[in-house]
Nucleic acid binder design. Structure first.
Length: 260
DNA sequence: ATGCCCGCACACTGCGGA
């Protein structure tokens, strides 16, 4: 079962880029972030025509997450638990039935947090605390589970082409990386790093200043697997080629294959 | 030192993004 995360940066602006990639890459499940659309405005047809079930959790203008799945989705839940006053659409989860295992898949769009320090950074850190709580609950369940999405976290220096440029940024501040590491240390496997030690692999290149042409990227889109899910992983790759296409997102898909 | 480029909305300018 091939499961991908993809920050599309506007699903309506990205229709061709996303459907072209779906046709080539043939993922079973896609966790989408930054759909920048309300639920009613999500263009369902191109995905349903390709055999995908579509579940959205959108809001007007910004943020918004969705799940596309060729397999039926059960027990869909929207919104990260822990703060009923949080209006931002950044979390959606569901159960996908594999041939041998049911997998709980969680799609997330973690707050950017800039400028730091400030209220936006406080919101990011508070959101990461709620994420840690949900992560603990996922580990306590028997079902293989994963949390995948745009984490807005550069875990280590080797995950940026120019780490010195990010030292005061909310994506790379020590507090941010510590909060990410706390979640990992609960027992999660960061899928890409579990399979590739080398530096120089990125999932985001800014639209500005020729970042793609210079390969000035950062790796901020991650899949975190519970031990039961990590045992099933057979592959993990970054589809960097998508960044070189026409009218691309600034992020590219990252995917895993699970023997589920 | 700052902005570069995008997408979206109370849209022809401002905001958020990273």
């Amino acid at each position: 079962m091939k499961i991908a995360t993809f920050n599309v940066n506007g699903i309506k602006a990205r229709l061709n880029a996303v459907t072209d990639w779906l046709d080539e890459s043939q993922p079973d499940v896609v966790l989408c972030q930054e759909i920048k659309s309300v639920d009613q405005g999500f263009p369902r047809e191109p995905f349903e025509d390709r055999g995908y079930n579509v579940e959205t959790h959108g809001q007007k203008g910004f943020n918004g997450v969705a799940i596309l799945s060729k397999r039926p989705l059960e027990d869909v839940r929207r919104g990260l638990p822990g703060d009923d006053s949080d209006e931002q659409a950044r979390w959606i989860e569901a159960t996908v039935m594999g041939d041998h295992h049911a997998v709980r898949v969680c799609g997330l769009y973690l707050p950017n947090g800039n400028p730091a320090p400030g209220p936006k950074y406080d919101y990011k850190l508070a959101w990461m605390q709620r994420l840690e709580a949900r992560a603990r609950d996922l580990l306590a369940d028997e079902m293989p589970a994963l949390m995948a999405g745009d984490y807005n976290v550069i875990p280590q220096a080797e995950d940026a082409a120019r780490p010195e440029a990010w030292k005061d940024d909310a994506l790379y501040l020590p507090q941010t990386r510590a909060a990410f590491r706390r979640i990992l240390n609960l027992g999660f496997t960061e899928a890409f790093r579990a399979r590739t030690e080398a530096p120089g692999y990125y999932s985001f290149w800014d639209y500005q200043a020729g970042a793609w042409e210079k390969n000035n990227g950062i790796r901020i889109d991650h899949l975190l697997l519970t031990p039961a899910a990590a045992d099933l992983m057979t592959d993990c790759q970054i589809d960097a080629f998508a960044r070189g296409r026409e009218k691309p997102s600034d992020h590219v898909p990252v995917w895993i294959d699970l023997a589920a």
